[in-house]
Computed example of a mutant assay.
Amino acid sequence: MSIEEIQNEIIEEFSMFEDWEERYQYMIDLGKDLPLIEEQYKTQSNIIKGCQSRVWVHAEMEDNKIVFTADSDAIITKGIIAILIRVFSNQPPKAIIDSDTDFIDEIGLKEHLSPTRANGLVSMIRQLKMYAIAYQTQLN
């Protein structure tokens, strides 16, 4: 499935909920299903800078696609990174680099986050794209 198809799926899922209380609960549930990072990768170098809570992300290349795993010590943040990983994991680096993240605005996520969480969201996206750039460089 392409990044765009996954994003459209997420937009559809979020549109089923009437209010943000339900959407937050859904994000928390998504966080519970997050492909968890192995303990050995919960290191300082894998922490995303710019997040108020701690978020660890690990990336590996498998069959020319990046596979992300992550964890966070905060439940909402864990839900946010779960959404991003669902979109970007198992995708080729170039697709990640070239993708936009307009779906975040479409589901209203950024406007319903505190300023510090919104900054964290931007930091998470930046870090996932940085991994993609690094792996794309290796492929060239």
Rank of each mutant, 00 (worst) to 15 (best):
E4W: 06
E4T: 07
I11F: 02
I11Q: 04
M16A: 14
F17K: 09
E18H: 13
E18Y: 13
Y24F: 13
M27C: 11
M27I: 09
M27Q: 05
I28M: 11
D29R: 14
D29S: 15
D29G: 10
K32M: 14
D33K: 15
I37V: 15
I37S: 03
Q40M: 11
Y41N: 12
K42C: 14
Q44S: 11
I47R: 13
I48F: 01
Q52S: 01
Q52E: 13
R54A: 08
V55K: 02
H58Q: 07
H58D: 10
E60F: 04
E60K: 11
I80E: 08
I80Y: 03
A82K: 06
A82R: 01
R86H: 15
V87G: 05
F88V: 07
N90Q: 15
P93Y: 11
K94M: 11
S99K: 08
D102S: 14
G108L: 11
K110Q: 07
K110R: 15
P115W: 01
A118N: 08
G120I: 05
L121N: 00
L121Q: 04
M124P: 07
Q127V: 08
L128T: 01
L128W: 00
K129W: 02
K129A: 00
M130S: 14
M130A: 12
M130G: 05
A134G: 07
A134Y: 12
Y135E: 11
L139M: 03
N140F: 06
